[in-house]
């Protein structure tokens, strides 16, 4: 009898203590403890789908059609006579459509070499924090380019296939904090035809890029591509670009300086000849405008 009374008392004390404690507990603390643990996807590793010339891991959300207008002017060291390169320009128009949040298709046309290009971009993995963390985002890019410039003798017209080149990239990026993101991009480029026998059909390259946010709307990006086995018949240099991203409502403006005049992977990674540090700098810009098609929820 005594025993059960004691038990009841212990029970009672326990309950009493428990409720008094939780009563004095702040309501916000209860909410804090009730907050479900969630996995958070790290978004906006880069502002745009390009770091400068090359792709970033970013893809647009489903139903977004992005219209890109890009210019690369001539070399700055052309001097006043060339108005610091502004007399000459390579223009690329492109339409990029996000079929799903992870999958984008793009088509582009560059005035340089009168090239057409198409690409598919697939976001494979995303950086995550909180519950299930994952350190990086990974996006795959496959692109194809066709040169249509008639720079061949009239009696030796190359086949369609002869002028195709393919690029495959694995983009791996990490947002270290809200200001700094870095990306590495192992790249494989294949050409169906090469100018001379010494030139490799297959070129391996590694891209390194990053961004630093200056304000919420402005970031500075840099990008560098190193080729392991460059083309022999010309004297190529590694592509290096610095750009400034300025974001407004539905636009991203990218102003840049680059030693490359082209904007297609197979060209700027392997065919760039300018020496950035002796002034072979092309000023340029990308303007992107996003249109929302369909009802995105």
């Amino acid at each position: 009898m005594n025993h059960s009374l004691k038990l009841s008392c212990i029970f009672f004390t326990f309950f009493f203590l428990n409720t008094t404690l939780s009563n004095s507990q702040d309501l916000l603390d209860i909410l804090e403890s009730e907050t479900p643990k969630t996995t958070e996807i790290v978004s906006a590793i880069f502002k745009g789908t390009r770091i400068a010339n090359g792709h970033s891991v970013e893809t647009r959300k489903k139903g977004v059609l992005e219209f890109l207008i890009s210019h690369r002017f001539g070399r700055v060291n052309g001097g006043f006579y060339q108005l610091f390169g502004l007399d000459e320009s390579n223009i690329r128009f492109a339409l990029e459509y996000a079929v799903s949040d992870n999958f984008t298709l793009g088509l582009g046309r560059s005035s340089f070499d009168k090239s057409y290009d198409g690409f598919v971009k697939y976001r494979l993995l995303q950086q995550k924090t909180s519950q299930n963390t994952f350190p990086v985002s990974v996006t795959l890019v496959g692109s194809m380019a066709q040169k249509t410039l008639r720079d061949y003798p009239a009696d030796d017209k190359p086949d369609f296939n002869d002028r195709l080149a393919y690029t495959t990239q694995v983009l791996i990026a990490r947002k270290f904090n809200s200001a700094i993101s870095l990306q590495v991009a192992p790249t494989y480029i294949h050409r169906n035809t090469v100018p001379t026998f010494q030139d490799p059909h297959d070129i391996l390259a590694l891209g390194i890029g990053g961004r630093m946010k200056i304000t919420n709307q402005v970031s500075v990006n840099a990008e560098y591509f190193y080729s392991f086995n460059p083309i022999e018949s010309i004297t190529p240099r590694d592509a290096f670009s610095i750009s400034v991203d300025i974001e407004t409502g539905g636009h991203v403006f990218q102003l840049m300086m680059s030693n490359a005049i082209t904007m297609i992977e197979k060209s700027f990674i392997t065919e760039t000849t300018g020496n950035f540090f002796s002034g072979d700098i092309h000023l340029g810009f990308n303007i992107s405008r996003a249109f929302h098609l369909g009802n995105k929820k």
Partner: peptide
């Protein structure tokens, strides 16, 4: 007492949501 995560706000346009958070 009320709490919410700002990132849980869903917008009609994905870019708006990104700009809102970023």
């Amino acid at each position: 007492a009320v709490t919410l995560l700002m990132k849980s706000f869903e917008f009609e346009k994905a870019l708006m949501q990104e700009h809102f958070n970023e």
